[in-house]
Design a protein around this nucleic acid. Structure first.
Lengths: 238, 238
DNA sequence: CCTAGTTTGCAACCAAAGTTACATAACCTA
DNA sequence: TAGGTTATGTAACTTTGGTTGCAAACTAGG
């Protein structure tokens, strides 16, 4: 993360057969019949991006529904002042740009590659066709959209009711090593800048809050790695 | 608005034929064939609520997709501290509880009647059946969900980037009399408490911001009615 | 191994927003 | 219209969060 400015050149690579596991990993298309599956595959277009390149710029029209096959991206919204709020991190299996595809408006957020990335996309008309041809897909799509809505509602709630340190605590918890209880680190390294952009505040405030959390005994910061020393406590703070 | 606590008794009234205009006003079901229409109508259940009654409580399971036929409701999220954040005002033609119906989880928000209200609802299984039987419905539903997502993203952006006075200015603009330019009042009266709950702040802060806006010349407050005296300015502030 | 760029630590300060505490005005209902 | 209830106006104060400004620690590439 923490990439600086970026162009948006995209390398369109020649179509190449999809590996099965990928399509199966896309929530929209699990459990389709073989014919249906090839119907979908025939419409997918492959696309690769370098680190820092944008798949989508907020405000621009776009009718592509994207799927992440490889690599991670950030989906963010930018303020006039240049600050960014990261709404989601995208990883293989995720999709994005549903909003623009389904309501026909401009892209509501920018999506930028955090590392070399492979994407596939469908055009709006193909999506709608698949949607009406395969009801299962329609069902999966509505489920996915509903989940997104649920997450955003919870984000709104957090922003409006919780203080920075609570939002930070929650962020740490959702990024903690899964199995581990106490003593767990984060699954992937996040810079303070990243964390700030994810919970909607400034980097310095994150630093301050991290110190507070350390004071309280919930976490320990060891050579800029965050260790959760008291998960219970952290959950209470969140 | 500004209703106090409320029970949640609901009066289930005997089924009665839907007036055509209503069904036509529901975005999901416009443009259906007559048979399709009666297929939908046969599954709708009618429900009335008194002012202050809840159609839905956040956290409770619910598999009903609701449609507003008459009256207004507020859709809100409550904090532990009892503060509420109003996410949307619902009026005839609106629907709610898509999230729980489509992802199968608990209701993400509470919905409360602001006045006597008539609702219709469909059960989850009927919704899914209609969805797969009539592709047009699937398309309308995904469009509607996408619009909701767009609005929530914009709400998140506002909360994270804008100050209270900007959020308030925006709120006033979206509630201003439609046609009118300067000199326009609000379409419906909102108490400061309402406004505070809609932009995620405290009532006193709204009062303070209103004074600021009046100072700046964007609005005038005349016997607790808000008049927009300089729409341009208000738009800049937002 | 060295350097340029990135990330972090931290303090001091300022601005915004939340809180507390009342007084006053408007509204509704009996 | 009287009297209670709800909505407002406003000030003072506290807390949180945003900003500024560096210095130090780190890291990746050459």
């Amino acid at each position: 993360m923490a990439t600086s400015e970026a162009g948006r050149k995209a390398v369109k690579t020649p179509p190449r057969p999809l590996r099965r596991p990928l399509l199966e990993a896309l929530p929209y298309f699990t459990g389709l019949s073989p014919q249906a599956r090839s119907d979908v595959e025939a419409r997918l277009v492959r696309l690769t991006l370098e680190k820092g390149e944008a798949a989508l710029l907020e405000g621009e029209p776009s009718d592509r529904l994207f799927f992440v096959a490889k690599g991670r991206l950030k989906l963010l919204r930018t303020s006039e002042g240049g600050r960014e709020h990261i709404l989601r991190l995208l990883r293989p299996g995720d999709s994005f740009n549903e909003v623009a595809v389904f309501d026909g408006g401009p892209a509501p957020a920018t999506v930028m590659a955090l590392e070399p990335v492979t994407l596939y996309y469908l055009r709006r008309k193909d999506v709608l066709e698949l949607l009406s041809r395969y009801p299962v897909v329609a069902e999966q799509v509505t489920r996915y959209l509903a989940q997104q809505l649920r997450e955003l509602v919870s984000m709104v709630e957090d922003l409006s009711f919780k203080h920075v340190s609570a939002r930070l605590a929650k962020l740490l918890l959702t990024h903690a090593q899964p199995a581990a209880g106490n003593g767990a680190g984060l699954r992937e390294h996040l810079t303070q800048q990243d964390m700030a952009a994810m919970i909607g505040t400034a980097r310095e405030v994150v630093a301050r809050s991290l110190r507070d959390l350390e004071q309280s005994g919930a976490i320990r910061i060891d050579r800029r790695r965050i260790i959760i020393t008291n998960r219970k406590l952290l959950e209470e703070l969140a």
